[in-house]
């Protein structure tokens, strides 16, 4: 398995790992989004969905371990890349301007990444390492309707959207997919994906904050 370590040691190898882990995290996020969207159908549906989910505990266990590993791989690799990139230009420019290549998303990847990390810690404390006997709808409504926490969620979800606005396109480029015929579709598709994911997620804390009857 020497090739894996040498792959990981190379710059492109690391990038492909970022891309692979990023893609899987995106898939998780999509699944999570769909699951969470059940909340829009009302508290009954949402609670039933959560209970159903919790009955599949072996699957969940494996899933959680996998997810943890993905996050670790993604984060550790991101930190390594970030540090290497920092060292690659010890002397900064006095004036530094974009020639038009960077996007707000690409510029902020490490920062949005850290925000997501902090968010996940808070999020897990909120929903995972908590009293599981409380129905999920109450949990969500209870927590996200608190202005401070609700706002923090919205803020973090914006960061997620920004992260994805570069990340989704980028992961294709990282594994070598770039084709004149599909680039426009890919580029726009990735942007739409990030906006939709962000918007739908944000709808939840938003409704919890402003709606009188969301999940009640």
């Amino acid at each position: 398995m020497g090739w894996i370590t040498s792959l990981y040691r190379s710059s492109i190898g690391k990038k492909s790992i970022m891309a692979a882990s990023g893609l899987l995290l995106c898939l998780f996020l999509l699944a999570h989004l769909l699951g969470n969207s059940v909340s829009f159908l009302g508290r009954e549906a949402f609670n039933t969905y959560a209970e159903k989910l919790h009955t599949m505990d072996t699957f969940l266990f494996v899933f959680e371990i996998g997810l943890l590993a993905l996050f670790l791989i993604h984060i550790i690799t991101a930190v390594l890349l970030y540090l290497e990139n920092l060292q690659a230009r010890p002397a900064r420019y006095a004036v530094s301007r974009s020639g038009g290549g960077r996007s707000p998303g690409s510029r902020t990847m490490p920062y949005t990444g850290v925000i997501i990390l902090v968010f996940i810690v808070v999020h897990l404390l909120n929903f995972h390492f908590t009293d599981k006997s409380i129905p999920v709808a109450d949990l969500v409504r209870g927590l996200l309707s608190r202005p401070a926490l609700g706002m923090f969620y919205i803020f973090s979800l914006l960061a997620v959207a920004l992260h994805l606005s570069h990340g989704v396109w980028s992961l294709f480029q990282s594994v070598g997919f770039n084709h004149d015929k599909y680039n426009q579709v890919l580029f726009k598709g990735a942007l739409i994906f990030s906006i939709v994911v962000g918007a739908v997620f944000i709808l939840i804390p938003f409704l919890a904050l402003v709606s009188r009857n969301f999940l009640l």
């Binding site: 290549g101 690409s106 990847m109 980028s170």
Partner: peptide, 12 residues
């Protein structure tokens, strides 16, 4: 450094 698909190279 490593490429993070910033596309500044292409622009310059």
């Amino acid at each position: 450094g490593n490429c993070s698909n910033e596309r500044e190279c292409e622009a310059a």
